[in-house]
Amino acid sequence: MPAIIEADHLKKAYRGDVPALAEATFRIEKGEFVTLIGRSGSGKSTLLNILGCLDSPSSGALTLDGEPVNFRDPSLLVSLRRRKIGFVFQQFNLLPYLTAQENIEYPMLFNYREPEVRARAAQELLTCVGLSNRGHHHPSELSGGEQQRVAIARALINNPPIIFADEPTGNLDQKTSEEIFSLMQSIAREKKTTFFIVTHERDFGEYADRSFQLIDGKVTGA
């Protein structure tokens, strides 16, 4: 199986030598559903930001979907985020003045797709996440679980091979969290999309094909 994410000795230190990520070397295959479990401050978000091309490592190399990532090339990073990556955040981060459907379409704006194409894709994804009748609602009219479903649909809109989710259930109750994990798992199976989910809740490890741990800045179990 070809690797979709290949991290090779990724390290990150802030302000000289304060280590945020001591060592991350692993390989994730296409369509895998992976969780990264670690305590607060263990470097989970730092690793996720590097893998998502939002931050650069102090050293090491990263390859996404066969493409080596040059962290010094901002336009390449933007291009990778547009083509290969989808993000799901703990706070959902939906734009309050857009409807659910418009929020889902939002990343497609930066790929300069026609409005009809965007609308069709967004409606399909609304159905996919079980919100086909909620497209015209604003985020304030949706529950936390529904907002996160919209956020998952938004992450999928450009059909990226990788979705990074940072504590996607951190703001949700247990039942809704399970529904969200279940939804992400089924999407991963159905669309062969790789999910890389950062969480501090060990219970959700059971949904994963593989579960890494981040202890003292080092990835283990890879």
């Binding site: 336009s75 933007v78 993000f87 938004r154």
Partner: peptide, 11 residues
């Protein structure tokens, strides 16, 4: 919002 937009592909 600007940070999120950048994460979602805005240059």
């Amino acid at each position: 919002e600007i940070g999120v937009s950048m994460a979602l592909g805005a240059s």
